[in-house]
């Protein structure tokens, strides 16, 4: 049997649905005349499992899994990793430092741009954005260790 993309997609959502149902044990369904907090989540989880199963049943219409191209995955993974570090640093370091580091890491680290150009771009863009938000739009940004 050829494994197709819809087999995987449908399977993931069926498994997710079963997981959600397992987590929903303590949520009361209630009665028809007074539905409880668990009614809606269990109803839509049931629908999600149903449509996931339909996807698996009709998977023959989708492309074989082997045809999926993953050439963009390393680039995407680098962006996700750099963004995750930036999110973790955002509150401790604040907008200015974190964003300079984020932009430099993406332009120099992920995109292999010249270090000087990447540094100038990162500092310039962050300075302009800071001015735009704090001066023009009067929206203060996260201060962090620098105090502004």
């Amino acid at each position: 049997m050829i494994i197709r993309t819809d087999h995987i997609a449908g399977g993931v959502f069926v498994a997710l649905g079963l997981g959600v149902l397992a987590l929903s044990g303590d949520l009361p369904i209630g009665t028809l005349s007074f539905p409880g907090a668990g009614m809606m989540p269990k109803l839509v989880t049931g629908l999600m499992i149903l449509f996931g199963l339909l996807l698996i049943v009709r998977a023959g219409e989708s492309a074989p899994l082997a045809d999926l191209r993953w050439g963009d995955l390393p680039h995407a993974a680098r962006i996700v990793a750099i963004t995750a570090v930036a999110i973790a640093l955002y509150q401790p370091l604040g907008f200015v430092l974190t964003m300079v580091l984020l932009l430099f890491a993406l332009t120099f680290g992920a995109e292999r741009r010249h270090a000087l150009a990447a540094a100038a771009f990162s500092i310039g863009v962050v300075a302009l954005t800071y001015l735009l938000f704090t001066v023009v739009l009067k929206t203060p940004l996260e201060p962090g260790v620098l105090g502004f």
Binding site: F95, L102, L103, L106, T107, E111
Partner: peptide, 13 residues
Amino acid sequence: GYLYPLVIMFCIV
């Protein structure tokens, strides 16, 4: 290569 880092920054902010 310069545009998308900018977009990510605006997404976070």
